[in-house]
Design a protein around this nucleic acid. Structure first.
Lengths: 139, 139
DNA sequence: CTTGACCTTAAAGTTTACTTTAAGGTTAGG
DNA sequence: CCTAACCTTAAAGTAAACTTTAAGGTCAAG
């Protein structure tokens, strides 16, 4: 799969995919004899995770630290398993953080919906802040 | 309350508070005879809401549309709740995606670890590993 | 009445996350 | 063979969200 096809499938501009490669969010991949990048299906999934994590408020720097290092070398059985386990730990950490974010947002929604429609500005503001502070603490 | 005091209380730089005023996130407020800005307590709460909303992934443009029109005391409650719910959907989608990734990884790890070090059972897991190798490289 | 910590503005600089441009090599179709 | 649509790189440009700088006015203390 060349970069144009991956771009169409993922909805990202080719320049953006090359940018992510330069920034170390996706690894440098195989090139054909002509120098063209050749992507596998997995890359598209990584791109989707990056985009969604961004939408949830993560910077590229944070995302890079949450995604596993793409250190390449010999993928012997043991190193492969070790890398996979490290990846699971990191994915779990990201999921944990997102669960807290979601719980915080839902708490805020519940509080706002529990306030009477005619409630004044500060009561609503306090409700929003109370919920968001809980989320910040959980972070 | 002058801008320096508000800055200390809110933890934001004075330049940032003036920036938010220029951008229309907080209203232009009263000035003393000397031209100094005079803030009320409510401004601090608005600033906290802005900061928390940013941490939840909202842009200043989005936040400006969520905050009440200046001078009016009423939050657009429905708009605020709708935006928060949309954000929850985004976060939930990312979590779902990551849960699948984690489950897939754990299944592959279990499979590799169940394979004896001999090597002839390696062929059975070949397809899985091939896909995994591609995905890991693409990481 | 001067010193230093405030405040004011406008404008320029910074960082992040990209896109666009420039200059060129590759591949598929007529 | 030519053309159009791909691909490559490095470098410059852009938008968002601020911060810093420059040049100055205000105020409380000594």
């Amino acid at each position: 799969m060349k970069i144009g096809e991956l771009a169409r499938e993922s909805g990202l501009a080719p320049s953006r995919i090359r940018f992510y490669e330069r920034e170390g969010l996706i690894g440098s991949i195989d090139r054909g004899l002509n120098g063209y990048r050749q992507y596998s299906r997995g890359t598209r999934q990584v791109l989707e995770i990056i985009v969604m994590a961004q939408q949830a408020g993560f910077s590229l720097d944070e995302i890079r630290n949450l995604l596993p290092p793409h250190g390449k070398g010999d993928w012997s059985r043991d190193t492969l398993v070790a890398a996979l386990k490290a990846k699971v730990v990191e994915v779990a950490a990201l999921r944990h953080r997102l669960a807290e974010t979601q719980a915080g947002l839902e708490a805020v929604i519940a509080r706002i919906e529990a306030t009477p429609p005619g409630g004044d500005c500060f009561e609503n503001a306090e409700a929003v802040l109370a919920g968001l502070r809980e989320q910040s603490k959980a972070d």
